[in-house]
């Protein structure tokens, strides 16, 4: 099964809409609550990253019996140093974004802690692509 969402860069009034819609899908699919929680945390953080940093993005999700695969691709400034971006506390968010309580440099760690695999690729000036997989058979609660 495939699900697609588009994300508007800079529009915080819609941040979390895709995550909220996909959460409803997961409940309908009877995914266990612990796994839903993990997926929702990771997806929300990645969605907010597009809103906070990129110009536009799309989210493509594939669900099968074993896993949920989420691909988030944005057009945006890209990430110059992905290892640095992964460090807790590192952030390039603007002061106004930080004032809202976003951009504390915790998002990518929240993603990493809640998925079974994560791959980030990025080209400066073009955009960023995040691929994450959550195994549905996994009973590891993190």
């Amino acid at each position: 099964m495939n699900f697609n969402y588009s994300v508007e860069g800079g529009n915080f009034s819609k941040a979390g809409t895709a995550s909220s819609q996909f959460k409803k899908v997961l409940k309908q699919l009877n995914v266990d609550p612990i796994t839903i929680k993990r997926i929702v945390v990771a997806l929300y953080e990645a969605e907010v990253n597009i809103v906070a940093h990129a110009w536009e993005g799309k989210i493509d999700i594939e669900v099968d019996m074993e896993k949920v695969y989420i691909n988030l691709a944005d057009k945006g400034p890209g990430i110059a140093d992905i290892n640095q971006a992964m460090k807790p506390g590192f952030s390039t968010a603007s002061p106004s974004v930080r004032e809202m309580g976003f951009g504390a440099g915790m998002g990518l760690m929240n993603i990493k802690n809640n998925v079974d695999s994560l791959h980030i690729s990025s080209e400066v000036g073009k955009g960023t692509e995040l691929e994450m997989t959550i195994n549905l058979s996994s009973i590891i609660s993190k």
Partner: peptide, 28 residues
């Protein structure tokens, strides 16, 4: 007051104390 902190560490059924007053609080 950090949304990602709450995303990462609050649990279902918790009451959230914050100074943030915007719509994204309700999304979280």
């Amino acid at each position: 007051d950090l949304l990602s902190d709450v995303m990462g560490h609050a649990e279902q059924g918790y009451i959230w104390i914050t100074l943030q007053t915007h719509k994204n609080v309700m999304a979280v």
